[in-house]
Amino acid sequence: MLLVGRDADRLAATGLGVPVVADLGDAGAGDAVVAAAREHLGGLDGLVNAAGVVAFGSLVDTPDEVVEELFLTNVVGPIFLLRRVLPLLEESQGFVLQLSAVVAERPMPGMAAYSASKAALSAVDAALRTELRRSRVSVVDVRPPHTETGLAGRPLAGTAPRLPQGLDPADVARRVVDALAAGETEVAAGDFG
């Protein structure tokens, strides 16, 4: 297993798999992932994209650089990565699983740019699902409700609105694994118990 992230110390602290230090917003990050997958794993069976950033506040008050960072991390970076790893996934007839968010299906006021970025990621998944059908690469779009990952406490801008208690990340992870095992292509917010 490869574990990809920006912070070498945090990757090492997990003790999981082969760490690959890369920034999703760098178009070349996917090249590092492909090289590591070939060297350490002999290929790639699947990609789970769980990267994301959030911002809160009205659209008019959201700085341009925050909108850019939302889309770079939540949409453009994953597209850069996918463009590079898809040939490996086609070789293995593997899978792509991307964690979007409930706001992709139910956009929220005070989160317009974030909602739009997550909806765009879900649109990528829908298009890829058809595009990759002949290659037998599965594409899974996961849109969980608010989950207690700490993301809401680390926004790029603004302050999180009062949110209900979120899902336990371990429960979301189990649901993701179950979706993969069952061959599901979508896990909507309402599919989390």
Score class of each variant (00 low, 15 high):
residue 151 L to F: 05
residue 97 L to V: 12
residue 67 V to T: 12
residue 103 V to P: 00
residue 67 V to Q: 12
residue 145 P to I: 08
residue 35 A to V: 09
residue 99 L to S: 07
residue 141 D to T: 13
residue 52 G to A: 06
residue 46 G to P: 01
residue 77 G to I: 09
residue 114 Y to G: 03
residue 94 G to R: 01
residue 70 L to D: 07
residue 29 A to W: 10
residue 160 A to E: 12
residue 78 P to H: 09
residue 76 V to M: 03
residue 102 V to W: 12
residue 120 A to Y: 09
residue 32 A to C: 08
residue 161 P to S: 07
residue 128 L to Y: 06
residue 88 L to C: 04
residue 118 K to I: 01
residue 154 R to A: 13
residue 34 V to K: 07
residue 68 E to I: 09
residue 134 R to D: 15
residue 162 R to C: 00
residue 152 A to E: 14
residue 46 G to N: 01
residue 90 E to Q: 15
residue 65 E to D: 14
residue 53 V to Y: 02
residue 170 A to R: 13
residue 145 P to S: 08
residue 75 V to C: 13
residue 164 P to Y: 11
residue 116 A to F: 04
residue 110 G to Y: 13
residue 145 P to D: 10
residue 150 G to S: 04
residue 148 E to M: 08
residue 53 V to R: 04
residue 51 A to L: 10
residue 40 H to R: 13
residue 149 T to H: 01
residue 169 P to Y: 08
residue 148 E to F: 04
residue 89 L to V: 03
residue 79 I to H: 11
residue 126 A to E: 12
residue 50 A to M: 11
residue 51 A to S: 12
residue 41 L to E: 10
residue 154 R to P: 03
residue 150 G to F: 06
residue 80 F to E: 09
residue 44 L to P: 01
residue 134 R to H: 10
residue 34 V to H: 07
residue 110 G to T: 11
residue 57 G to K: 04
residue 81 L to N: 07
